[in-house]
Amino acid sequence: MSYALSPKVTPASTALASANPWSLLPPLGNLDAYISAVNRLPMLTLEQEQEFARSLKDNNDLDAAGKLVLSHLRLVVATSRKYLGYGLPHADLIQEGNIGLMKAVKRFDPDQGVRLVSYALHWIKAEMHEYILKNWRMVKVATTKAQRKLFFNLRSMKQGFKDDADVATHRDTLTQDQINSMAKTLNVKREEVIEMEQRMSGHDVLLDPSPSDDGEEAYGPIAYLSDATQEPTQLMESRQRDYLASDGISTALEGLDDRSRRIVEERWLKVNDDGSGGMTLHDLAAEYKVSAERIRQIEVAAMKKMKKVLAAYA
């Protein structure tokens, strides 16, 4: 991008450049007024730019930094217009670009033989790109440097295909010839172009959609993405069950007499090596020389007593 600076120095621009730069800031709250004001701010000559940059570098002169920033605010506005197609607020793009401009001014070295306008453009675009990638989708579509470059180049090239007068129909998806052309131009694989195109064509999906008008529960990703095992109430219930199954039952068994405890253990807690349970009612009845019904009555009484102890633990 070419960005011409005015070489002509007028008395008015000289007076403005030497004034307190922060007093030249336009009023806030009106974007049109801001853009109009920054476009009226004076440009700096090469000599002024070098002088202010050296003053900032050598003496940390904040007034000089302010003049460098103010004289390039129009560059931020001009650059931001190229990114309006992403549906993000123009004012936010300008704000992010201004952050990039201030970073550029802070790092600018006047002895490198390059104008600030060329150096700052990289930083301005970098901040705008970062803002777009973070806010264009809830889930980032590009995370690596290569993916970011592909994202912005692919979008501009796709727009070029749509604007081409030779294209009879405007499709939302790319044709095979267009994919091949993009991959060759951008020096990437066809698969990378296809993957990024799919990411860009996707839309945000509600994890937990609202119920429909007929009262039916809507089915969303939350139904199969959520992990119920890590839900706080589920964790508490699981820990409580584990506690009751170990310490709780042990304490409840200690409150029983020997016969009752053995009957409960044989009937409910014992597991043999072959997977079978313990003794049956008739087996226990034969051992204690009582009826099977009597064993069942002892078992019921013991279970009731244990339940009271476990209820206290719960």
Rank of each mutant, 00 (worst) to 15 (best):
I295W: 09
K305W: 02
E266R: 14
E299P: 00
A302R: 03
A302K: 03
R296F: 02
D283W: 06
L281F: 14
V271P: 00
D273W: 01
E266D: 10
S276A: 11
M306A: 09
V300P: 01
N272Q: 10
T280L: 15
S276E: 00
E266T: 11
L284N: 03
Y288H: 08
M279A: 15
Y288W: 14
K305L: 07
Y288R: 06
H282L: 15
I295C: 14
T280D: 01
G275A: 02
S276V: 03
R296T: 01
G278K: 09
K304E: 07
L284M: 15
I298R: 07
A285F: 12
R296H: 05
E299G: 06
H282G: 08
A302C: 06
K270W: 04
I298N: 02
V290P: 00
D273P: 01
K289S: 12
Y288V: 11
R294P: 00
G278D: 00
E266G: 11
E287G: 04
A292M: 11
R267A: 14
A301K: 15
R294Q: 09
I298V: 14
S291H: 04
E293D: 05
I298Q: 08
L284G: 08
G278Q: 07
A301S: 14
R267N: 05
L284V: 12
H282S: 13
E299W: 02
G275H: 01
D273L: 10
M279K: 15
V271Q: 10
V300E: 04
M303P: 00
S291A: 12
E299V: 08
G278E: 01
D283Y: 08
D283T: 07
G278R: 10
V290N: 03
K304N: 11
A285P: 00
R294F: 13
R294D: 00
K289F: 09
N272M: 09
H282N: 11
V271C: 07
E293K: 15
D274N: 10
L269V: 13
H282Y: 09
A285N: 03
W268N: 09
A285H: 07
S276H: 03
I295G: 09
K304F: 10
V300A: 09
K305M: 08
M306C: 09
E299F: 07
A292C: 11
R296C: 01
R296Y: 04
S291W: 06
A302I: 06
G277D: 00
K305R: 13
M279Q: 09
L269S: 12
L281V: 10
E293C: 09
G278M: 12
A302E: 01
Y288T: 03
R294G: 00
G277H: 06
